[in-house]
């Protein structure tokens, strides 16, 4: 059963859904943005600590589906230690990968995030994977405190 879904629900996704990384409130965050997907009710709060243009810490709180939880969990892992520009570049690559704009996935750059490439075959689920990154984008641009995927 569910053989067709192996590309979408990879073991890494189940793992991050069961045990989300960096799932905590960050008291000393200097960026905090809410992300909301009104279609499915996914909500997350992203916390960043940015020192001298480098993301020194990232964490989140919230509830969502397995894809969205795994996506934000993986994201907080990968952006730690990256500069703001590097994180922005990653957002663009991730967006292109999940929306199917690029066939070739730059594995070196995208790393573990490649497990989320499967969503491009499921248009109804792309927003689940990209919510975290749109929220990050808003946090980096220091935009308003709430971001919606609609």
């Amino acid at each position: 059963m569910f053989e067709d879904l192996r590309d979408l629900y990879q073991e890494v996704i189940f793992d991050h859904n069961r045990n989300p990384r960096n799932f905590r409130v960050m008291d000393n965050a200097n960026r905090q943005v809410e992300g909301f997907n009104p279609l499915c009710g996914d909500r997350l709060t992203l916390f960043l600590k940015i020192d001298d243009h480098v993301i020194s810490d990232a964490s989140f709180q919230g509830s969502g589906c397995a894809i969205s939880t795994a996506s934000v969990s993986l994201m907080t892992e990968i952006v730690k230690g990256k500069t703001e520009d590097e994180a922005e570049a990653l957002f663009k690559q991730f967006h292109e990968m999940t929306t199917g704009k690029t066939e070739e996935i730059n594995l070196e750059a995208i790393g573990k995030l490649a497990v989320l490439a499967g969503v491009r075959e499921y248009p109804a689920r792309v927003k689940c994977a990209t919510l975290a990154w749109h929220t990050l984008d808003a946090a980096l641009k220091n935009e308003a405190q709430s971001i919606s995927t609609e």
Partner: peptide, 22 residues
């Protein structure tokens, strides 16, 4: 511990159409 959207996608792969959402 399983979000309705995951239920919806999983059941869809079995040919079952349900609604997941608000």
């Amino acid at each position: 511990r399983i979000h309705p959207h995951d239920i919806g996608t999983m059941l869809d792969s079995l040919g079952i159409a349900i609604r997941a959402g608000h």
